[in-house]
Structure formats: structure tokens, C-alpha cells
Nucleic acid binder design. Structure first.
Lengths: 133, 133
DNA sequence: ATAAATGCAAAGCATTTGCAACCAT
DNA sequence: ATGGTTGCAAATGCTTTGCATTTAT
């Protein structure tokens, strides 16, 4: 069940987690973040990582990306942008493609819903994996 | 590890599963499919559902949709189309928006990758959930 | 003071798998 | 015959949670 909190406190842990998230352009898993944060705070627990990743996502400071049924990846750069996902190695790359916010209006109008954001992802084989074959 | 199969056999189970998937425009979970298939084949196992859902996805007969870190949803209509996801109730709706395949070429060219497909999803609050508030 | 946040460890739970029996080709 | 497929159940493994303790405000 979702806890209801009246306010959110600043904590060293969340700060470090956000810094770690922002320090990379890869799209790390919770465990990768955990390993990184541990270098600076050897006692953090995985639970804290998950709780803060969730909080940061709700705060709009991070994005949770889900592909397939394994684990989630997180993105500390929350300004909308599109991704390319390699179906071979699972790598996620940011794309330069301009974001088309106008799409949100037309979709919102057509189904009468309030659109908060959209995601566009491309799937395929990255050139690194193609070279291996 | 992925099993390597020389060929794929036709089975009654897979046929029923695909029919169930195609019978709806909702985007069911593996468990929903399981319950439906059971009505016709009381002895199917959940494992078979999962294995076939995976096989069908690999065959290009179905799509696996992942939102958040809970469970996957499946779509038996594999021709590309876009979705609207309600962040309140989790409902997934098909959109009429025309599919822009041309995007794939420009992305493919810019990052030198081979694009197989793309996905575009809009998130927000559906009007059903908005009315409730 | 007071409630949010943490660490630890124990669940939770969707999905995967090993295996013997079974069945499509 | 051959090896893909199934049902069953046990095992995986990512993520969530309960609880006593710490800590931000």
C-alpha cells in the first residue's frame, strides 16, 4: 500500500542517489545504482535505493523505464527525450530526435483524456551488436 | 537461457491462447489469459501460458507491453499502433493516431542502427478516472 | 516532539525452469 | 523415432515491506 506522507524530508541518501543517477547517461538498474551509492555510503540498503528511486520518480526527478519482464531501468534526466533500445544487449541510448509535444494535444482531444507525458522508443540492433555477428 | 529450437510445433494450447489474445481489445495480463484459456482447457498450466506468450511474441504474433515494475500486458494485435495508458487505473487504450514509420529511417540513419520497430505511448488520466475525482 | 527515512531481513509475487510424461511431425 | 511441448511444482530474482531505530524539521 502506498504510504501517505505529509511532507518529504531531505536526506543524504536521496541526494547521493540522485547524483549517481545524474552522473550517467546510461540507464542504470536499481542494483547498479546501489553499487555506486555504496562506494560513498557503504551502509545503504537496497530497500532505501528502491524507496528513493520511487520517490524521485514521483517527484519528477527521474524516470522509470520498463522493457520486458525483468528489471526496471532508471533515468535521472527527466526532461522528455526519446530512446533507442537494443534488443540484443538491452542497452538504452538517448536520441536527438526533437520532442513533439503537439502530439499530446491531439491525442488528448481525441480521447478526452488529460495527457501528462508521452514516450517514444525505437527498438532494433545497435551497431555494436551488429558488428559481432 | 534461451532454448534453441529447430522448429516450432502447432499445439492446441498455443492456438487457444492466440485466439484469446485476439478476442479482446483490452491488453490482458498473463493471468487473465490463463483464466480465459482455462475455461476451454481446464488443465492448462500457467507455465504453458507464459511459455506461449513468449513464443508468440517472438513469432511476431503478439506484443509484450511493460509499464512499471509489476506485470506485463500482452497485445494480440501485433500490427503497430499507439497506446494511451491511464496512470490511475492502469488501463491501456488503442489510439487512432497514424503510425509514422518514417521516423524509423531517420533514427536508424542517425545512430547507425537497424530499427525493427518503435513504440509510442501517451500517459495521463483517462476521463473515466477523472470523473471519479 | 513528531513523523519521515533508514537498515536489515523477511516476505511478496510475477515469471521462469527442471523434469518426466506426452504428442506433433 | 525425435525432440518440441505440457503440467506440476519448485525455484528465481527483482521489488516491496514490517519493524525498531535514527534523523530531519
Amino acid at each position: 500500500m502506498a504510504e501517505k506522507k505529509g511532507f518529504i524530508r531531505k536526506t543524504k541518501q536521496r541526494e547521493v542517489i540522485l547524483n549517481v543517477l545524474r552522473s550517467t547517461r546510461t540507464h542504470p538498474t536499481a542494483d547498479w545504482v546501489y553499487q555506486e551509492v555504496r562506494k560513498e555510503m557503504p551502509n545503504v540498503s537496497l530497500g532505501t535505493i528502491y524507496r528513493n528511486l520511487k520517490t524521485l520518480t514521483e517527484m519528477g526527478e527521474a524516470l522509470e523505464l520498463s522493457y520486458g519482464s525483468t528489471y526496471s531501468r532508471f533515468d535521472g534526466h527527466a526532461d522528455n527525450h526519446y530512446h533507442f533500445v537494443c534488443e540484443e544487449c538491452g542497452d538504452v541510448t538517448d536520441l536527438e530526435l526533437p520532442v513533439q509535444d503537439s502530439l499530446e494535444n491531439s491525442v488528448g482531444d481525441s480521447i478526452g483524456a488529460e495527457i501528462t507525458h508521452h514516450r517514444l522508443e525505437f527498438y532494433g540492433i545497435c551497431n555494436h551488436c551488429r558488428a559481432k555477428k
